[in-house]
Write a protein that binds this DNA or RNA. Structure first.
Lengths: 214, 214
DNA sequence: CAGGACTGGATAGTGTGAGTATCTAGGCTT
DNA sequence: AAGCCTAGATACTCACACTATCCAGTCCTG
């Protein structure tokens, strides 16, 4: 299929497709001549993934490129790839690590208490410490004890996540699924949390108004 | 305190402070003359909150303005304010609602199954439907049964969230806390999830290699 | 086999968001 | 009175994600 057909099927403007090609988010089509290339179904799928990563996942073009490059890499240990994808995603919260030593310790205690086998060098440790420091400066200090319940729930979520990609044999498909689960389920979880907050808030308000019906 | 002192204490450049004032994120200082205004500790705090919302929470200036405006409003039902804050936050996923009818039904079933008392008009319903549709087009279709375990965990998280702001009497402080919990805990939860994923993935890999030690 | 539509690739332009810098009077401090 | 600092307005910058033009080269049609 030619680029105009690819554009029609995917709904992505030709100029944007060219832009993604330039930026290295998509492999070029099979060249059939100096001014002609052949695209396939996999390109349609790739465009869908790109749009999902950027719009749903909120990734920048550069971050999406890194994640896609990781997906395309053959992985010996498919499960370990999750970590690598995570590494490709610097949260913007890693700026200003000054004075986060105490918070880093807190994160380490938490990881240990949860018995999580997480790389010492994981950027998430630092990112989490930075987030906690920011919250602390806003007057909301979360100690290990405050975080443990949240961490326990996060562990339960992670188990569900890994169940989703269990039993997929094709490595390429697995890598893609892992990325989708990690990145694109995040907004879904955030939305579920908000819906739940709204429901729980109303429940508590109602109970406060009429405690006997509880 | 003058603006330069405010800048020094908060670490935010004078030009940026003026920018936030222009955009309506901060109340102006008390005018002491045509070219002089007095700022207080509350302005320092406000700047911290603005920076946290934009950098940690990833909000745009416009979204942060809406949230802050909501915080500043006096609320009759402080808990219900959570919902209002949510409304001020359109997720970018609300574009393209075509063909989401079936997914909307699915979301409605889920909300009903969870017994969440959520407004019929909540933008989260539509946003969730749109996210699910996108995931479905990527080959990951989540039915109500798949979502229920996640929703149950989300409900548990929401209970923890509301516990955090329980017992705060000052309405202004409560509004701010509610916003912080909802918005700024989100990246923390995402990081916990990723740490947990990494831990769980390694655990499963290890168990697959040596099942007898499990 | 000529004309027009289409193509890949390069280059340039656009619009938005989030600041950053400059300018102009006016005021405060010593 | 001199030399700052200040509020407010306006203008400028920079990155990002496109979007539009250009330019040969190619294909297809009549």
């Amino acid at each position: 299929m030619r680029i105009s057909e690819l554009s029609r099927q995917s709904g992505v403007p030709v100029a944007s497709i060219k832009y993604y090609l330039r930026k290295g988010l998509m492999p070029a089509g099979r060249a059939m001549g100096a001014t002609l290339a052949e695209y396939g179904e996999e390109h349609v799928q790739r465009l869908r993934l790109i749009r999902a990563l950027t719009t749903l996942g909120g990734l920048s073009i550069a971050a999406a490129r890194d994640v896609l490059a990781e997906i395309d890499q053959p992985h010996d240990d498919p499960r370990g790839m999750l970590g690598v994808i995570h590494y490709a995603l610097r949260t913007p919260a890693d700026a200003g690590a000054t004075g986060a030593e105490e918070l880093t310790e807190r994160v380490d205690s938490l990881v240990e208490a949860m018995d999580w086998d997480v790389s010492e060098a994981s950027p998430h440790r630092l990112a989490l410490a930075a987030s906690l420091r920011e919250l602390s400066r806003l007057g909301m200090d979360f100690g290990v004890d405050d975080l443990l319940p949240y961490a326990t729930l996060a562990a339960a979520v992670a188990r569900l996540d890994l169940d989703q990609i269990d039993g997929i044999e094709d490595r390429m498909a697995l890598a893609e699924r892992a990325a989708i689960i990690t990145l694109l389920l995040e907004p879904v979880l955030a939305l579920l949390r908000r819906l739940a907050q709204e429901g729980e808030a109303r429940r508590r308000t109602a109970e406060a108004a009429a405690p006997h019906t509880a």
